[in-house]
């Protein structure tokens, strides 16, 4: 640092402070709809639906009570069932598949991987009609377990890809040592490999849960009443009459909360999951 740098340094730090300020303004602006949703959920209906926005008020839980009165607990229960079962299915099927595609030898790894990625990219619109017809014929329409199975298939490719990227990081020496010790394949997976990739399994499970919890299209078409999940329930607000912004905001907050918390907790793994393991 030479003598003349005092001015440049202070101007640089001023510019840094300005950039930070701009960053925060933009971030808060971007986040505002979420903040506003949470705020509106705690307003009495008359305030939430008023023309001039209110920022300071006495919070009430009226909106949340009204959402529960509309039977939201049941929809949440269904969403939870579908998301948890879908996650279990995709993880249980993905572990051996990812293991085979990374540590064991199978021919045509590339082909198998393309198969998985192509099913992930298969638009739901292309498969929903036969699913609907078949489920209708066998009486499994509006069945939450069936929806969970379909979600399991929807999430499986992502889970396989993602877990594979974690499996590939297991040092081969460890597996080799286990094999020399005469560990069978099952023991090799359960005892040696799984503990090492547990963070990966958790991250894949999380991504699977998020996708299933948020899914709207299939839920709308494959369920009607007893198996209805939260997204189509929320969607039904569109046909609402009168003032309902407080209820809607409360319901949306409850619906979004599990995934928001999960996503915040697992920020580091999120990129990896979203990019199907391509980015670490």
């Amino acid at each position: 640092m030479n003598g003349s740098s005092t001015t440049t340094r202070s101007s640089r730090s001023a510019r840094g402070a300005l950039t930070t300020l701009v960053t925060w303004v933009l971030v808060l602006l971007f986040f505002f709809p979420v903040f506003w949703m949470v705020l509106n959920g705690f307003k009495p209906e008359s305030l939430a639906s008023s023309v001039d926005p209110t920022f300071i008020f006495k919070p009430v839980t009226e909106g949340y009570q009204l959402a529960m009165d509309r039977g939201m607990a049941g929809y949440l229960q269904n969403s939870l069932t579908a998301a948890v079962i879908a996650t279990i299915i995709s993880v249980v099927l993905a572990i051996p598949a990812a293991y085979a595609l990374s540590i064991r030898r199978v021919n045509n790894v590339e082909n198998s991987l393309s198969f998985f990625i192509s099913t992930r990219f298969m638009p739901l619109a292309a498969i929903v009609l036969p699913l609907f017809m078949i489920l209708k014929t066998v009486g499994l329409l509006d069945n939450i377990y069936m929806l969970a199975v379909v979600y399991g298939a929807m999430n499986l490719p992502v889970t396989v890809w993602m877990m594979r990227s974690f499996f590939l990081e297991v040092p081969f020496e460890i597996i080799e040592a286990a094999r020399v010790d005469g560990a069978g394949m099952f023991r090799e997976i359960v005892r040696i490999v799984l503990p090492l990739v547990l963070p990966g399994v958790a991250a894949a499970a999380l991504i699977s849960f998020i996708f299933a919890w948020n899914e709207y299209f299939l839920a709308l078409l494959l369920t009607s009443s007893s198996a209805r999940t939260t997204p189509p329930f929320l969607g039904s607000f569109v046909d609402g009459r009168g003032q309902f912004l407080a209820v809607l905001s409360a319901a949306a907050t409850i619906a979004a909360l599990p995934v928001i918390i999960a996503g915040w907790a697992a920020q580091k793994q999120l990129v990896r999951g979203l990019s199907m393991g391509a980015i670490k």
Binding site: V27, L28, F30, F31, P33, V34, W36, M37, N40, I210, W213, N214, Y216, T230, P231, P232, L234, G235, F237, V238, L245, L248, S249, A251, A252, A255, A256, V259, I260, A262, G263, W264, Q267, L270
Partner: peptide
């Protein structure tokens, strides 16, 4: 953390919030 939230919000909820609020 605040920035990633819009992506985590249930899409149906996000659309509704934008539509009305």
């Amino acid at each position: 953390t605040l920035m990633i939230t819009p992506f985590l919000i249930m899409p149906a909820a996000a659309s509704l919030i934008w539509k009305y609020s």
